[in-house]
Simulated scan of single mutants.
Amino acid sequence: MKKLLSLSTLILVATLFTGCAVNLPYNNRLNYTSISELSALPKVQDTVYIKWNPETFPQRIDIQGSDGFVGGGTRTRIPTGVALSSRIEEAIAQIAKLSSNGSPLTITVEKARSGFEYTAGILNRAPAIDVADVTLVATFEYKGQKWTNTFNSKLKDPKMGGSSQTGLLDKAWDDIAVQVTKDVSKHLGNN
């Protein structure tokens, strides 16, 4: 009986530490507020082609645990590259025309990380992200100009239990896309 109890305990502990896969519903489009904010920026005459380096960044999905105690052992699928690249392209399209025939704007991703924490609580039916901490370090090249910048967005949901499963992380990605576009706008306007 003692061996059976020990074995059961060992299996339970191993299961807790290996984590489980968590798939959350993400949005890969900019929200209306971000688009409205970008529409106030001056438009540039240049036609731009966005080239990602590495080329696979727009398909990148990270499998990671939460930064906090709750969900630290999970294997959560976080579409960092998918979310950031689609939002950045949509954001830049608000200030410049995008076309495969345009002048290349090369975005080299030095670092991209989507940190998050889940809401703590036993009564939560589904995991909700209540802290989002996104960082993007990128080097840009456009018509002989080259510059590197770091973009950060750290958000915390004040509502106990989280407002939505992924809304805070979506909002942080939107914020990064707006920051990138404002930075790129300064350089596109110089040509």
Results as ranks from 00 to 15, higher is better:
Ile95Tyr: 09
Asn124Gly: 11
Ile78Leu: 13
Gly72Asn: 13
Ile92Lys: 13
Val82His: 07
Ala172Val: 00
Phe116Glu: 07
Thr106Arg: 06
Ile61Met: 11
Ile88Trp: 07
Val48Cys: 04
Ile95Trp: 10
Leu105Ser: 11
Arg87Ser: 08
Ser86Thr: 10
Gly73Glu: 01
Ser85His: 11
Glu55Phe: 10
Ser103Met: 10
Ser86Cys: 01
Leu155Met: 12
Leu168Asp: 05
Met160Ser: 08
Gly65Gln: 05
Gln145His: 14
Ser163Tyr: 09
Ser114Lys: 04
Gln94Asp: 00
Leu136Val: 02
Thr148Ile: 03
Asp62Lys: 11
Thr108Asp: 12
Thr108Cys: 03
Lys97Leu: 13
Trp52Phe: 07
Ile88Gly: 07
Gln145Ala: 15
Asp170Lys: 09
Asn53Ser: 14
Glu110Tyr: 07
Lys51Leu: 01
Asp46Ile: 00
Trp147Thr: 14
Arg87Ile: 04
Pro58Thr: 05
Ile61Pro: 04
Val109Met: 09
Gly102Met: 11
Gly73Gln: 10
Thr56Trp: 09
Phe140Arg: 09
Arg75Trp: 06
Gly144Ser: 05
Ile50Met: 02
Tyr49Glu: 15
Lys146Gly: 01
Leu168Val: 09
Trp147Asn: 11
Val134Lys: 07
Asp46Trp: 02
Val82Asp: 02
Ile50Ala: 03
Asp133Val: 03
Arg125Ile: 11
Asp46Thr: 11
Gly73His: 15
Ala128Asn: 15
Gln145Cys: 05
Arg60Pro: 00
Gln45Met: 10
Asn124Arg: 12
Asp62Met: 06
Lys156Thr: 15
Gly81Ile: 10
Arg77Asn: 10
Leu105His: 08
Gly81Tyr: 02
Glu110Leu: 13
Asn149Val: 00
Thr166Gln: 06
Arg125Cys: 06
Gly72Asp: 03
Lys171Val: 09
Phe140Leu: 01
Pro104Ile: 06
Ile107Gln: 03
Thr108Gly: 05
Ala126Trp: 15
Ile122Arg: 13
Asp62Pro: 05
Ala126Leu: 14
Gly121Asp: 05
Val134Cys: 03
Phe140Ser: 02
Leu105Met: 04
Val109Leu: 07
Glu55Val: 12
Phe151Gln: 07
Ser66Ile: 02
Pro54Phe: 08
Arg77Pro: 00
Thr74Lys: 04
Ile122Gly: 04
Gly72Tyr: 13
Gln64Arg: 15
Met160Val: 15
Ile129Lys: 04
Leu169Pro: 04
Gln45Thr: 14
Phe116Leu: 01
Ile61Ser: 03
Tyr118Phe: 15
Ser85Thr: 13
Thr166Val: 02
Pro127Asp: 02
Arg87Leu: 07
Glu141Val: 08
Thr135Gly: 00
